[in-house]
Simulated scan of single mutants.
Amino acid sequence: MNPTPTKNNLPLRKGDFTNLFEALDYAAEGITGYNFYDGTGKLSTVLPYKKLRKEARSLARRLLGLGPRRGARVALVADTQPDFMRYFFACQYAGLVPIPLPAPIQLGHRRSYVEQLRRLLVTCQAEIAIATEAHLPFLMKAAASLNLSFYGGTKAFVHLPEEDVQLQQSGADDLAYLQFTSGSTRFPRGVMISQKTVMNNLSNLIGGVVQFQNDDRVVSWLPFYHDMGLVGMVLAPLAAQVSVDYLNPRDFAMRPRLWLKLMSDNRATISFGSAMGYESCQRRLRSADIESLDLCPWRVAGIGAETIRPQPLIQFADHLAPAGFNKRAFVAEYR
């Protein structure tokens, strides 16, 4: 199994689409896509955009078979798994509104997580809720007392029939998704993001802040339920038709060196992280690790944080300079 290539066979379009439906349709004409790596750094799943489009359209018809109204809200426990992409874009094709919900980095404190999940499901007024197998027990408990039309695991949809319907694109003012705030200072609040808003954000990110090129490659460990993880590391690469390599945030937390190894091995050019992530990585790197890395291609090292302390970033850059990391790659991104 090989990851999707870096160099695409499509002319680069920098997010100039009407909606996410159209963005995936165009990306699917190429050969790039999403790639998922396990906790040892081994490639576990390859999901080219072409395959994602086919599977998302099939799932869209299965979702519509449940009978939801157009614009109904679908809660997705946003673990770093291919199924998140499949169902997120299935909602785009079906005219439904996906809502990424937190997937805990540590699976302790089960009772508090179930209660958090229940409150989020009520707050977002979800009619459908879906989780991968790892988080399904939490969802089943959280949704048991709620009046949802369907809740369950991703595997349940394999047995559902596909509705014979024409999939219709969303308008510019239709909701693309609902994004919860981080909840660092209060309980998370839902923000409604229209197709027009997300496409404007993506166009500015692709053509402005990052300046995506057709030979770029992205690596990310950021959670899909965080704004930068979703917009910057999931939607923007797709809208720019570039390949992405993912580590689960849990695996990054345990082995932060995997991030830099993946950057080096795949000659990635773009990655974003929190200031704490850069600091954690720098502290746990050994001299032998640095000697084996080639970070010369890394041209955009984004930092997403409300407050950015320069000293840890300076230490990171100085520490990784022998591996070819250029401190000018740092880019602050406030969303």
Rank of each mutant, 00 (worst) to 15 (best):
A28D: 02
S287D: 09
N204L: 15
A144Q: 12
T307D: 03
A129L: 02
Y93P: 08
Q168R: 02
G183L: 14
S112L: 14
G208M: 09
Q125S: 07
I303R: 11
N201W: 05
L136D: 00
I193E: 12
P297T: 10
K327I: 03
G207K: 04
G190M: 08
N147R: 13
T307M: 08
A23W: 00
R118I: 01
R57I: 12
S145Y: 02
V74N: 05
N204K: 00
A142K: 08
M263Y: 00
A268P: 00
V114E: 10
V331Y: 08
A126V: 05
P223C: 15
E163A: 15
F17A: 09
L293K: 00
D251G: 11
V234S: 11
L313G: 12
V46N: 03
F89H: 12
A131M: 04
Y87S: 05
S203E: 14
N201E: 14
R69Y: 03
M140C: 10
S203P: 04
Q179E: 10
F84N: 12
L202A: 06
S44R: 13
T6W: 01
D294G: 09
R111A: 14
S292Q: 11
N8I: 12
E22D: 06
L293Q: 05
M276C: 04
R257Y: 04
S184I: 12
P322I: 00
T123E: 11
L121D: 00
D25H: 08
K141P: 00
V114I: 15
P5M: 07
R111I: 14
Q166M: 10
Q241K: 13
P188Y: 01
N147W: 01
R86K: 15
V219P: 15
I99W: 08
D245G: 13
L293G: 03
L59H: 06
G208K: 00
L101Y: 04
A60P: 09
I314L: 11
T132W: 02
A332Q: 14
L313W: 01
F138G: 10
Q168G: 01
Q195L: 13
N200D: 12
G33N: 06
V242S: 03
L285F: 01
P322T: 02
Y87V: 13
F84T: 15
A275T: 13
W259S: 13
A305S: 15
Q92N: 08
Y26D: 07
R13T: 06
V191W: 05
L247G: 12
R118C: 05
P223W: 13
K42F: 06
D216C: 15
L107N: 13
A321G: 02
V46Q: 04
D318W: 05
G33A: 03
Y49N: 04
L66V: 10
R86N: 11
L24E: 02
Q282R: 14
L238P: 00
